[in-house]
C-alpha cells in the first residue's frame, strides 16, 4: 500500500503527466457518455451539410458533407478509438510478455526459436503489415484490433525478454529456486512483478500508436464500415479538405490531444516507476 501511495506522490509531482491523465479522463468520459449525450446514431443526417462549428447551437461542432453531427461523431468515435487502442494493446502486451518471458527465462533453443519469430515480425513495416492483415480478414472492429495487436507484440516481447534476462540472475530468484519453487511460479510471482514498470510504460505508449494505426486504417477506408471512428471521419472529410477543413481538423485535433496525453502519461509513469529518479 505504502508503495502505491509513494508512487502516486511521485507521479503527481509531474504536472504534464497529471494534465495527460485529465485529458484521458475527459476523453474516457466522452466515450462512456456518448450513448446518453447523443443517443441517436452518429451516422444519422440531422441537419444541413457543411454547417461550420459555432454556426448552429444544435450542432456546435458543425456538420459534415452529409449533414451528420460532428460532435456526435467525435463522442462515439472516442469510444471506438479508445476501445481498439486499449484492447489491441492488452492483447499485444499479454502475448508479447508470454513470449518474452519464456524466451528470457529458458534461453537456449526456446529463446532462439521465439526470438527469430519475433524478429521476423519486426522486419515487416508495422503499418503495411496491418493493412495487409485487415485487407485479408475483412475490416471489422475485431479484425482491426487483432491486426494492430499482431503487429505490435514483438516490441513487448523484446522488452520483456531483456528484463527477464536481467532479473533471472538476481539473488532473490536464485533464492526462490533454492527453496524448490517451480519455473512458471518463479516467472509469475518473482520475475514479472518486477518487470511490470517498463511494461506499463511501454503499454501506455503503445495505446497511442494503436489509436494512430486505427485512424490510419480508417482513413484508407480499412476501418469497420459500421462504426464511426475518428479516423473514418478524417477519411470522409478529406474530399472537402479545401472548402471545409474543420471536418478533418476536429477529429485530427482529438487524436493529437489523446496521443499527446498518452505520451505524457507514459513519460510520467516512466519517471515515477524508475527507482533511480525516486528522490528527484
Amino acid at each position: 500500500m505504502n508503495g502505491i501511495l509513494s508512487f502516486a506522490r511521485r507521479f503527481a509531482r509531474n504536472r504534464a503527466a497529471l494534465a495527460g491523465v485529465l485529458v484521458l479522463l475527459f476523453v474516457g468520459a466522452m466515450a462512456l457518455s456518448a450513448p446518453f449525450v447523443y443517443p441517436s446514431d452518429p451516422w444519422d443526417m440531422v441537419t444541413m451539410p457543411f454547417v461550420w462549428p459555432g454556426e448552429d447551437a444544435e450542432v456546435w461542432l458543425g456538420s459534415d458533407m452529409m449533414g451528420r453531427d460532428l460532435a456526435s461523431g467525435i463522442f462515439h468515435g472516442a469510444k471506438v478509438s479508445l476501445t481498439i487502442g486499449f484492447v489491441a494493446t492488452l492483447l499485444a502486451t499479454l502475448f508479447g510478455t508470454l513470449v518474452g518471458a519464456l524466451a528470457g527465462y529458458y534461453l537456449g533453443l526456446a529463446d532462439t526459436l521465439l526470438m527469430r519469430v519475433t524478429e521476423l515480425f519486426q522486419t515487416i513495416p508495422q503499418f503495411i503489415f496491418a493493412i495487409v492483415v485487415v485487407a485479408i480478414l475483412t475490416p471489422s472492429v475485431t479484425n482491426v484490433t487483432l491486426a494492430i495487436a499482431l503487429v505490435s507484440w514483438p516490441s513487448v516481447a523484446r522488452l520483456v525478454r531483456g528484463e527477464v534476462l536481467a532479473l533471472r540472475e538476481r539473488e532473490f530468484v536464485q533464492a526462490s529456486r533454492s527453496i524448490g519453487m517451480g519455473d512458471l511460479r518463479i516467472i509469475a510471482t518473482q520475475i514479472l512483478p518486477n518487470a511490470l514498470g517498463p511494461i506499463i510504460v511501454m503499454g501506455s505508449l503503445m495505446v497511442a500508436t494503436a489509436i494512430l494505426t486505427e485512424a490510419g486504417l480508417a482513413f484508407l477506408g480499412l476501418g469497420d464500415p459500421n462504426v464511426m471512428s475518428w479516423g473514418s471521419i478524417i477519411g470522409a472529410g478529406r474530399d472537402a479538405l479545401r472548402s471545409a477543413w474543420y471536418i478533418t481538423a476536429i477529429p485530427g485535433f482529438a487524436i493529437l490531444l489523446t496521443v499527446l496525453a498518452l505520451n505524457l502519461v507514459g513519460e510520467g509513469l516512466n519517471d515515477a516507476l524508475n527507482p533511480r529518479l525516486k528522490n528527484r
Partner: peptide
C-alpha cells in the same frame, strides 16, 4: 546469499 538487498524480492 551475499547481498541482503538483492536476495529479497522487493515486491
Amino acid at each position: 546469499f551475499q547481498d541482503p538487498f538483492a536476495s529479497l524480492n522487493p515486491r
